[in-house]
């Protein structure tokens, strides 16, 4: 069964190789122009979580930015970045939207080699919040000692950030208990006392505040984690090597769409209603503003260093190996 698949993949590779040769023989003129058929792969499956940060993908689809590059992008909604990495490595997905903590773990553990080809989000004030119930005795971060903190996933970007926040306030991660709770259930868990504080992204914390009177305890991305890079778009190293033109075309379209998203929040609101279940009124409440156009190696290294500090990684990890540097050819 799998042998057959491998054979099929090999024959697909051969086909691509012949196609490339044919394209090469046909004269480099057309191949170098971005809009012509020089793409190694025109149809891209992108795995993404239904989060606001991937709005540029929807915008690029709707505005025809991908199409102008000769790309057809098919979004696949995934349940979590971790579960989708095998899909990326096996070629089922070409591009994966994932938070950096997951992606770095994947590379550091030697599961697969990933390249960051674009950034989705950098945390800005108002994007994320640690909330407590109305009238809660917890008024500052140091009050969290011995309390239950609701997070969406353990051992990931949220717990990492909260750990950093606890440290700046003189506590350690061991001083609190992290409780997993899906975001839609977080406000209810606060209300019912199942968690004492809850980490919420937009638009959950705005709704919790306006509907249940939940109160902001702290901005999680501040101090050591201010402007923290949250998530990006990954491809496998092999994909990057074999499809440089496709990757470049994707990056151009994404950049264009991200610029639209930054300059025109109404476009984002419209996009959100298409690929998430966030309605227009809720979308209007959101601050957003974290769309990012560049992958910054220094900032990304901060993520890896923080992961090392809180033992998410066994040894130092250099993010240089994940940077995508397009070859000149």
């Amino acid at each position: 069964m799998s042998g057959l698949r491998r054979r099929l993949r090999i024959s697909a590779l051969l086909l691509t190789a012949t196609a490339l040769l044919a394209a090469g023989c046909g004269g480099g003129g057309s191949a170098s122009s971005p809009n012509a058929g020089g793409l190694e792969k025109a149809e891209l499956n992108i795995g993404m979580l239904p989060l606001p940060e991937v709005a540029p993908i929807q915008i690029a689809i709707d505005k025809g930015f991908f199409k102008a590059e000769g790309l057809t992008v098919k979004p696949q909604i995934i349940q979590g970045g971790a579960a989708a990495v095998p899909d990326l490595l096996s070629g089922k997905l070409d591009i994966l939207h994932s938070n950096y903590v997951s992606a770095i773990s994947v590379v550091a553990k030697g599961v697969g080699k990933l390249k960051v080809i674009g950034e989705a989000w950098t945390a800005k004030p108002g994007n994320f919040a640690i909330m407590v119930k109305k009238g809660s005795p917890i008024t500052k971060v140091s009050d969290l000692k011995g309390k239950k903190v609701g997070v969406n996933t353990l051992n990931n970007v949220v717990t990492l950030t909260v750990s950093a926040l606890l440290k700046t306030n003189g506590l350690t991660p061991e001083d609190v208990t992290f409780v997993e709770q899906p975001f839609p259930q977080m406000a209810g868990a606060l209300e019912g006392g199942q968690v004492d504080a809850g980490f919420m992204p937009e638009p959950f914390h705005q709704i919790a505040a306006s509907k249940n009177g939940a109160v902001l305890l702290a901005e999680p991305f501040a101090g050591p984690t201010a402007d923290f890079p949250i998530a990006g778009y990954m491809v496998s190293e092999q994909f990057a090597k074999e499809n440089p033109k496709t990757v470049a075309a994707f990056q151009r379209a994404l950049l264009k769409a991200t610029e639209v998203a930054i300059s025109n929040s109404a476009e984002v609101d419209t996009a959100l209603t298409k690929y998430t279940k966030i309605d227009k009124a809720t979308a209007d409440l959101m601050v957003l503003g974290g769309f990012s156009t560049t992958v910054n190696e220094t900032r990304l290294q901060r993520v890896a260093d923080l992961m090392l500090e809180f033992k998410y990684l066994p040894q130092k990890f250099d993010v240089k190996q994940m940077m995508h540097t397009p070859s000149a050819s």
Binding site: V106, G112, E180, Q181
Partner: peptide
């Protein structure tokens, strides 16, 4: 959604690839 148990062990292995 747990931090203990055999199902959790499965998930840890899965998430850790």
């Amino acid at each position: 959604f747990s931090t203990i148990g055999i199902g959790y062990q499965l998930r840890v292995a899965e998430r850790g690839y």
